[in-house]
Amino acid sequence: MVKRLSVVDVDLCVGCQSCMFACNRRFGEAGLGRSAIHIQSAGGIERGFVVRVCRACPDPPCSKVCPTGALIRREGGGVRLNYAKCIACGNCVRGCTLGAIFWDVELDKPTVCVYCGYCAGFCPYGVIRMEEVA
C-alpha cells in the first residue's frame, strides 16, 4: 500500500524539532540542512507551530512545474525525485503551495519527503504518523 506522512493534530506539537533532526539522520548526519520536514512557530511560540511536510497530493503542483520531468508522480499521490534528471532550477520549491519542498545545499538539489516515516518514530507527542493513502 502507498503511504504518506500525515499531521494528526498540529496542536500537539511542542516545537522540539526532533522530526527535523531525524529526517537529517536518514543520511547518517546531524543537523538540519537535508531535512524534508520543517517546524516553525505560527508567528511566535505563543501561537503554536506549523508543520511543513509533503502531504502527497494526488495531483501534485510541484511535478507540473518541473521542466525536466524529474519529479515523477507516485501512484496514489506524491512524487519521487529522479536526481539524474533534476537540473536544480528550484521551480518545484516555488511551485509547492505548502512550501514543503526544501533545498539540500550539499547536493544542490531539492529535498522532498520520501514517505519513509523515520521522523514519526521520533515524535513523542503523536503529531505526525504514517498512514495509508485512501
Binding site: 537529517n24 543520511f27 547518517g28 548526519e29 546531524a30 543537523g31 538540519l32 540542512g33
Partner: peptide, 17 residues
Amino acid sequence: GKKSLKFKDPKAYRALY
C-alpha cells in the same frame, strides 16, 4: 543556520542517538 554535520561512522552515530 541550517548546516548538516557528517560522521566517520554514521551508523554508530545513529545507533547511539
